[in-house]
């Protein structure tokens, strides 16, 4: 019917679909333009093109070394915090006493700025991975405990009654009802934690490290290689974004039912 308006409609749809990407590209172009027109020196604010050049001036293998150092610490800290947070949440949900004892302790840990504690941890545990992993873990585990506990406590009372009416053992109430019910909550906690894990690893590298993207950024800045520092920063953000996406993919793949319903 509307033969003439169809291509227009298609164009509008595409524009709408790629709006976020177009906005981003526009922003980068504007940045480039400001740098060139305003003749902003590279050591104040490098232009996107300078950053890209700086990125490729660093050898690929060096990038990989730094990436691996940061990723290793972030993932170890993340996994460790999952291994601590989930059993802890189950314990706090099951035992009132444990909840009363641990909850204030968790609040104290959470309200202590980890950045400030990091140097002390390095003094305590040395300058190797263990201290960096601990710093990462301290930053990541609180959101996980909160989300897991919230999810398990929000289990509808009827589901618990179903379990009680069957006189099922309590560990099955936990494993077959409360934990699956908490899955969407746990994943929102994981999404927050995975980005915090990168922050944790970088904080640890700022304090003491010879490699890693955080170290690379600090090192580049101190030698006024600002475009290189920006390249490191952007690389770090991309990695962080990919990790965040991976958590979403894992959820979509293994727990498709837990995603919000699309209409």
């Amino acid at each position: 019917m509307n033969q003439t308006s169809q291509p227009k409609l298609w164009l509008a749809q595409q524009a709408n679909r790629f709006a976020p990407a177009l906005f981003f590209i526009g922003l980068v172009l504007l940045w480039e333009l400001i740098c060139r027109v305003g003749k902003v020196p590279n050591y104040i604010l490098p232009s996107p093109s300078a950053i890209i050049t700086a990125f490729f001036n660093v050898e690929f293998s060096r990038w990989m070394i730094h990436l691996w150092a940061t990723l290793r610490v972030a993932l170890m800290g993340f996994v460790l915090s999952i291994m601590i947070a989930i059993p802890l949440s189950i314990g706090m949900m099951r035992s009132q006493l444990m909840n009363r004892i641990l909850y204030p302790a968790l609040i104290v840990i959470q309200s202590t700025p980890v950045v400030a504690v990091a140097p002390l941890i390095i003094v305590l545990l040395g300058t190797d991975d263990p201290s960096r992993v601990l710093i990462t873990c301290l930053i990541t585990f609180f959101p996980l405990v909160v989300s897991t506990t919230t999810g398990m406590l929000e289990t509808p009372p009827e589901m618990i009654e179903l379990s009680q009416s069957l006189r099922a053992p309590r560990y099955r109430e936990t494993w077959q009802i409360r934990i699956p019910y908490a899955i969407p909550h746990i994943f929102s906690g994981l999404r927050v934690s995975i980005t915090l894990a990168i922050i944790g690893a970088v904080v640890a590298e700022f304090v003491a490290a010879e490699e890693g993207l955080g170290y690379f950024i600090q090192f580049s800045t101190s030698f006024f290689k600002i475009p290189q520092a920006f390249a490191g920063l952007i690389f770090l953000s991309v990695i962080s974004l990919l990790l965040f996406k991976s958590v979403q993919w894992i959820q979509a793949w293994f727990f498709p039912w837990s995603l919000p319903k699309k209409k």
Partner: peptide, 29 residues
């Protein structure tokens, strides 16, 4: 054991298929 309860609003477990929901009392007990 000889009581079955039907709840308001079905009360099915959203992470299990229909068949597994029906079998849930056995699995759970």
């Amino acid at each position: 054991d000889d009581v079955g309860i039907v709840f308001q609003k079905a009360n099915l477990l959203p992470w299990l298929t229909v068949r597994k929901n029906v079998l849930f009392p056995l699995k759970h007990k």
